[in-house]
Design a protein around this nucleic acid. Structure first.
Length: 550
RNA sequence: UGACCCAUGGUGUAAUGGUAACACUACGGUUUUUGGUACCGUCAUUCAAGGUUCGAGUCCUUGUGGGUCAACCA
């Protein structure tokens, strides 16, 4: 393999070469359990797990659960399910930042003892005021020079619940004049009398991100802490804590997060869609969440390939949705069963086919798969074809059915169109009359008859009604949240889901969740969990490509 | 009136001082019992100006453009 390396791999190979961390690679994926994982997380998950695996390393799953007011166990479960489904395994290394609350508290006391942290009584507004702006240095808090003893006593009182929420915070003593806002005495502990999903009411003070994340990495001996670019300004602080605390030197490396056309990744906005009822939930098949994409029918392998192909770098990017869809089609082409489903039916009567006769024709499920199984498709005198597959007056480019024309039925016979019935008032074609060539059956055609077009069909009598959810992009604009003058909801696509009835071949009555289908000549579909025994519901994953220009 | 990050076809990513390439898209063609798949082909790229060098997409300087940073969120 003469593969080129991305910049993270280059760093890792340099570290391995220099013997840093004994050449070990240990990464982590650190989600906050306050929402569902989305396409952006998918990228982070792939990078963390695949990079470690590439170098024989391992990856931890660690929930960054330091804010009890927004986090919940239900998300913890959904997140684990999604990562597993994606195909990654953290084995027995499931951790929670909350597991380290005791240790983190010790770290805080140590900082205080070394004169590197202090309790601040200022209000939130006052602290913000004293922080300055990117262009103006901050001012020292009047509480900055409290004695170690006083700080220790106050911090312990904070921990003991002696103060109400917001009364005091613990701050690291770094530099109020730093050009880096994060270094202007960042808050590291706040009072929150809130119930935590794991630690219950054990604590009423909780560490902030900057005082939990890096230390958690360090506690777990993470060698390379891979995160997105927006944390780049946190790195000096990340390193500052490691240095002052003298703990394991994990290294933070930032990459540009992946943006995909027509998708948003802001949890706040995703939540808004859910709360406003614009989608049925976090796992709505239109959502850019892993659960949503799974429901829509995107295979895990396709998502992984997509992330690989999108690459890793440090510049802003917007990946075209076509790349994702290309990966999805490529995977689905390999694994999906080809089946017959007619959406907009038009009756065809085969006048020389015996009435009452039903013939079962064997059809291969997936010609792309060598070991594919077969199933039986019923054929009879009356069948449905797609309405758009017939034209009264077809032109040369149109090679489907038309008066006097021959067409091949996929997994069936060649038909000759003799006549059709038209409602003169509405102009609607009501029925087509055809004859069939008895010796033209698929696989044993000795008719010598030529037919340019091939149509799919279902036998009218045996066809089963089902529901199709024709899904489209959730937004009408490729960057719905990229407009200063417009809200992302202004681009909500009212036509993002269309529900229609369809006729499916009877074998589909046995369709199972997680199975992938190609509805021949139309699109890929997968069974929706809303399906019942009596009524199958399918979601359109992605349409087949078409080079036909109407 | 700051700091930090970034800049290669339409999009994304390579090229690690030595012939700018790969994928997706678009367009054209071949094959085809899916107007799918497969296969072949075409178009199209180093932000600008200086400098270093035999040689710069790559190193340096200055611009220009884009992004990020002022939650008791992560």
């Amino acid at each position: 393999m003469n593969e080129s390396l991305n910049f993270i791999e280059q760093i890792i190979e340099e570290d391995i070469a220099s013997g840093k961390h004994n050449g070990e690679v240990h990464t982590r994926f650190p989600p906050e359990p306050n929402g569902f994982l989305h396409i952006g997380h998918t990228k982070a998950i792939c990078i963390n797990f695949e990079t470690a695996a590439k170098y024989g390393g391992i990856t931890n799953l660690r929930f960054d659960d330091t804010n009890p007011t927004t986090e919940d166990t239900s998300f913890v479960e959904a997140i684990q399910r999604d990562i597993k489904w994606l195909g990654f395994d953290w084995e027995d290394r499931l951790y929670f930042a909350s597991d380290y609350f005791g240790q983190l508290y010790e770290f805080a006391e140590k900082l205080i003892e070394n004169g590197l942290a202090y309790v601040d009584d200022s209000t939130s507004d006052e602290i913000a005021e004293m922080k300055g702006t990117p262009n103006q240095p901050g001012k020292n808090s009047p509480f900055r020079d409290r004695s170690v003893e006083e700080n220790l006593q106050l911090f312990r009182a904070m921990k003991n619940g002696d103060f109400p929420d917001g009364a005091k915070v613990l701050r690291a003593k770094v530099d109020m004049e730093s050009p880096n806002m994060l270094l202007r005495d960042p808050l590291i502990y706040r009072i929150k009398h809130a119930h935590h999903h794991r630690t219950g009411d054990d604590w009423c003070i909780y560490p902030m991100y900057d005082f939990a994340h890096g230390q958690s990495d360090s506690i777990e001996n993470i060698t390379h802490s891979l995160c997105s670019l927006e944390f780049i300004h946190h790195r000096p602080l990340y390193n500052w804590f490691i240095e002052k605390l003298g703990i394991y030197p994990s290294r933070q490396i930032e990459f540009a997060r992946m943006n995909v056309e027509y998708m948003i990744t802001s949890k706040r906005k995703l939540l808004k869609l859910v709360e406003k009822g614009l989608v049925s939930g976090w796992d709505d098949a239109r959502m850019p969440t892993i659960a949503g994409m799974r429901r829509k029918g995107y295979p895990a392998a396709a998502l992984r390939t997509f992330c690989d192909k999108a690459g890793v770098a440090k510049r802003e990017n917007l990946i075209e949705i076509e790349l994702l869809e290309s990966c999805v089609r490529d995977e689905l082409n390999k694994i999906s069963d080809r089946v017959h489903v007619v959406i907009d039916p038009l009756k065809v009567i085969i006048t020389n086919y015996p009435e009452g006769k039903v013939e079962m024709i064997e059809a291969i499920n997936n010609p792309e798969d060598e070991g594919s199984e077969t199933r039986m498709i019923p054929f009879s005198r009356e069948i449905w074809i797609e309405r758009e597959d017939f034209r009264e007056a077809p032109n040369k480019k149109y090679y489907r059915m038309g008066p006097g024309r021959n067409v091949r039925l996929k997994n069936g016979y060649i038909l000759h169109c003799e006549d059709y019935k038209k409602n003169e008032e509405t102009g609607e074609i009501e029925e087509i009359y055809c004859t069939y060539y008895e010796n033209s059956k698929s696989g044993e055609d000795v008719s010598g008859v030529k037919a340019k077009g091939t149509l799919h069909f279902v036998s009218a009598e045996q066809a089963v009604k089902c529901e199709l959810r024709l899904l489209d992009y959730l937004f009408t604009d490729p960057t719905p949240d990229g407009h200063d003058d417009k809200d992302f909801l202004d681009f909500y696509n009212e036509d993002s889901i269309k529900v229609v009835d369809a006729y499916m071949e009877p074998a589909l009555a046995k369709a199972k969740e997680g199975q992938y289908f190609q509805f021949i000549r139309n699109a890929y579909f997968t069974l929706d969990p809303d399906s019942t025994e009596d009524k199958k519901i399918f979601n359109r994953t992605v349409a087949l490509k078409s080079s036909w220009k109407k």
